[in-house]
Design a protein around this nucleic acid. Sequence first.
DNA 1: TCTGAAAGTAATCATTT
DNA 2: AAATGATTACTTTCAGA
Lengths: 155, 155
Amino acid sequence: MQKNKTITIDGIDKKILRALMLDARTPILEIARNVGISGAAIHQRLRKLEKSKLISGSKFIINPKILGYSTLAFVGIYLDKAANTDEVIRALKRIPEIVECHFTTGSFGIFVKVLSLDNTHLMHIINKNIQTITGVLRTESLISLDQQIDRQIHI
Amino acid sequence: MQKNKTITIDGIDKKILRALMLDARTPILEIARNVGISGAAIHQRLRKLEKSKLISGSKFIINPKILGYSTLAFVGIYLDKAANTDEVIRALKRIPEIVECHFTTGSFGIFVKVLSLDNTHLMHIINKNIQTITGVLRTESLISLDQQIDRQIHI
DNA sequence: TCTGAAAGTAATCATTT
DNA sequence: AAATGATTACTTTCAGA
């Protein structure tokens, strides 16, 4: 168990975070001008926020559609009572189209988010890659026809 | 409908993308040294990748746990046949704890991802904020006990 | 598509409040 | 603890190969 110290963030921290949550390459000096302190001060605040682990990193966001990945699906995976869950997770990690994987409450044990080229490709991933894992009983799919919201927690 | 031109990316583009997908503030010159071309050339390639929309932006990633958001849940929302879906989506956008929202195939019409402080808070969001929207019949929740995979499409 | 040079910006550090 | 100005390293743009 990790003990995460709580942190107090003021209005300046919020402005810094809001700018960088939208665009990780927002110029520091632009933020500095907006909040009225020096670039070096913004930097020190960023280091503090990173140290507190409130900022867990930064990423360039890739648009999967440009690579032909047009189908997004959620797949619930029902596991055998005797299934070795660690083994199942390890097998799921080896499927690159799986971008999220959760242990969940409810009827299925594992819930994954899958990016695929099309429905045929999705079917292949489910039938050939997921269903063949030892311990997997059956799956239930939900295809996202359109995503309306994609954001982070509000600060 | 948006027409996205397909793009050819070579090994250098892949190296650039892989570095920046892991850390959006990786120095361009560090990448330049790794791949053996100038910083200016990396820059031009980045502009090409942005223009193609393969790169759809960059973000600082906030760790919700540090802000006390320890419960992640997926909620399936069943809609009335007569529901005004645009109205429902608009109402969902006003709930800041909803970070993803999808129109989906299958029994429920809408599927959302919710970040909440704890189970009590989640219950409040479902009962007071989601169930009260006109057109919403009932909901079905799935709580993520542990997330094992969180990544982007493999390049 | 690449390079090297020039101008602007980021990151670090010693120092001050 | 949080800010600043100076210094070094990096990013960005541009003319030209």
